[in-house]
Computed example of a mutant assay.
Amino acid sequence: MFGKKKNTPQIDKEQLELIQNAQRRIKQKKRLFAHFAMFLIGALFLILANTVLGIGKDFKIAGIEWFVFAILVWLFFLLYHTFNVFVTHKFMGKSWEQQQLDKLVSLQKARIEKIKSELKKEAPVIAESEVYNETKSSDTTGSELTIIVAAAENNAIGKDNKLIWHLSNDLKRFKSLTNGHHIIMGRKTFESFPKPLPNRTHVVITRQVDYKAPKGVIIVNSLEAAIDASKNDSQPFIIGGGQIYEQAMMIANKIELTRVHETFEADAFFPEIDLNIWQEIDNEFHKKDANHDHEFSFITYIRK
């Protein structure tokens, strides 16, 4: 009844930035080291070129050998490079590395706690669904969960917790179909009865703790629990109200609908029947007569 969402592991954006920054800093230090090595070798070469090979021996600037200026200029660029690596871009010593590691660990812990929190929220729903599915798959009686309802053209089913119409043939059909079976309903639907209906096992869904009901009435707190309580019945019926119908539409096998061919003002409605999911297999039309103020049809749907 409920799908499982599969989480794809991902590196957090901030974690990725930290890793990329660390890699970039390592490259910067490597380039600085290479620059320093080239400076030493280059400076030595300039000195040897001037003193040993005599290249530019007579060329001086302000009485100072030219290679000294060349080495000083190169030294300036090396110092500037060093300043950029260790000051402009911050230094990457042991303290910095530890800070990055601590930040990564902190972010990972926060991510884990967030996942745990989401799992805690979803666990009850997932567990309830899995329990229901296990019960359904292990049910050897072949139970067929059936919704039975009378609804107008605008899907109205009731007002002020009462029926809007009185159709004697509909009541007879309801009695005939549900006789001897479990009937599952919400608390308000149960309380609309003057007394429990004879020769039927009433299963009432309510969130009220310690709800009092006549002897023989089964009290549960969810639709799944109601179905479990009816598992020995070959055809339990869902009889209302609106919220219970809406939940049952997702799992029921069959709908026995009395369609009253008029529209009515109401405060309770039946869900729309999706013909991509449900297939009509029977339709019996009835005209108005002395006992029936409205035209109606008995329609049977089964899940495709």
Rank of each mutant, 00 (worst) to 15 (best):
A34W: 03
A34F: 05
R31P: 09
E128F: 06
F296N: 06
N154S: 00
F237R: 06
K212C: 01
F86G: 02
I11W: 01
W278H: 08
I255V: 12
L275W: 06
V52M: 08
Y245G: 12
T88E: 08
E262T: 12
E113K: 06
H202K: 01
G63E: 03
E144P: 11
I11F: 00
I26G: 07
Q10A: 13
F59W: 15
S192Y: 03
W96Q: 06
R259Q: 15
A248I: 13
L107H: 08
V125Q: 09
D267H: 00
H81Y: 06
L78P: 03
K188V: 07
F193L: 07
L257W: 06
D282P: 01
N21S: 10
H181D: 13
H89L: 09
T141A: 03
W278M: 03
V85H: 01
E122F: 12
K57F: 11
T189F: 04
R303T: 15
N221G: 13
K195H: 11
N283C: 11
K159H: 05
H286Q: 02
E128V: 04
I61M: 13
R187Q: 10
F2A: 11
D233Q: 13
I64H: 10
L257Q: 06
Q100E: 15
A62R: 11
Q15D: 02
G56E: 07
E284K: 14
R207Y: 00
I164H: 12
I184G: 15
R200Y: 15
K30L: 15
N154R: 02
N276Q: 02
R25E: 03
V220E: 04
F86P: 05
N155R: 01
I244T: 11
E118P: 02
A49F: 01
L275G: 02
G240Q: 03
L107Y: 07
L275C: 05
G63H: 04
P9H: 11
S137Q: 14
S95G: 12
M249T: 06
W96K: 09
K120I: 12
I251F: 09
K172C: 12
E295S: 00
Q279M: 13
F285T: 15
T82A: 15
F33I: 01
S138D: 08
M92G: 01
I19H: 03
L32K: 00
L167R: 07
S222R: 10
V220I: 07
R173I: 12
I218L: 08
F190A: 08
Q108V: 03
F2M: 00
T82R: 07
Q247D: 09
W96P: 03
V105Q: 03
H286L: 08
L257I: 09
H286E: 12
H286D: 07
D289P: 14
E118L: 04
M38P: 14
P194S: 14
E14Y: 05
N283A: 14
L275T: 09
R111G: 05
F76A: 10
L32F: 08
K60H: 15
K120Q: 12
Q108C: 02
S95I: 09
N21L: 05
T51Q: 15
A127C: 04
H81G: 10
T178H: 00
K116L: 15
I64L: 15
T51E: 14
V125T: 13
T178A: 08
L72A: 12
V73G: 04
V203T: 08
D228V: 08
F45C: 10
H202L: 03
I183T: 09
G56S: 06
L163P: 00
S192C: 02
D170Y: 05
E134C: 05
